[in-house]
């Protein structure tokens, strides 16, 4: 589903670039980078961590908004929104990793506690 949206966005970017409207260039590179971050967050399982899932959603919403800006030729605003979306996607990745590491750390603590109980 997200890939479908990404394809649509890229098509929109391509169309905007072809029409040449607006003063700023179409942020094709930024679109790619933002979509890569969103995909990475999704693949890491960000949807399973509530806070990460929220930021991932915010990233997607902002990409959607950027698409609307680019359709109107407001490429500069679109670039800012894509950067903001990328920062949300990166945060979603970090939150997912943090949750996983905290889970592992808790597991390790639990394991050593169990070992201590067994040793007694």
């Amino acid at each position: 589903m997200h890939l479908g949206k990404a394809s649509g966005l890229l098509a929109l970017v391509a169309l905007a670039a072809a029409t040449g409207c607006g003063s700023a260039a179409v942020p094709v590179g930024q679109v790619t980078e933002t979509q890569a971050s969103i995909r990475a967050a999704h693949e890491l399982g960000a949807e399973r961590t509530p806070l990460a899932a929220m930021h991932l959603k915010m990233a997607r919403d902002q990409v959607q908004a950027a698409r609307a800006y680019m359709a109107d030729g407001d490429n500069a605003e679109a670039w800012y929104l894509l950067k903001r979306a990328e920062s949300d996607a990166d945060l979603a990745i970090a939150l997912t990793r943090e949750a996983e590491m905290k889970r592992k750390a808790a597991q390790s603590r639990h394991r050593i506690e169990e070992l201590g109980e067994r040793a007694q």
Binding site: S87, D88, D90, L91, A94
Partner: peptide
């Protein structure tokens, strides 16, 4: 400002990640 806040949050999250990683390593 929005991006700066996210990056600050990102830094704190990775700091927390690194701390948890260290705790895990110590536990291991």
């Amino acid at each position: 400002a929005y991006i700066a806040q996210r990056k600050a949050q990102l830094a704190m999250t990775y700091g927390s990640y690194a701390q948890a990683q260290r705790e895990r390593a110590l536990s291991e």
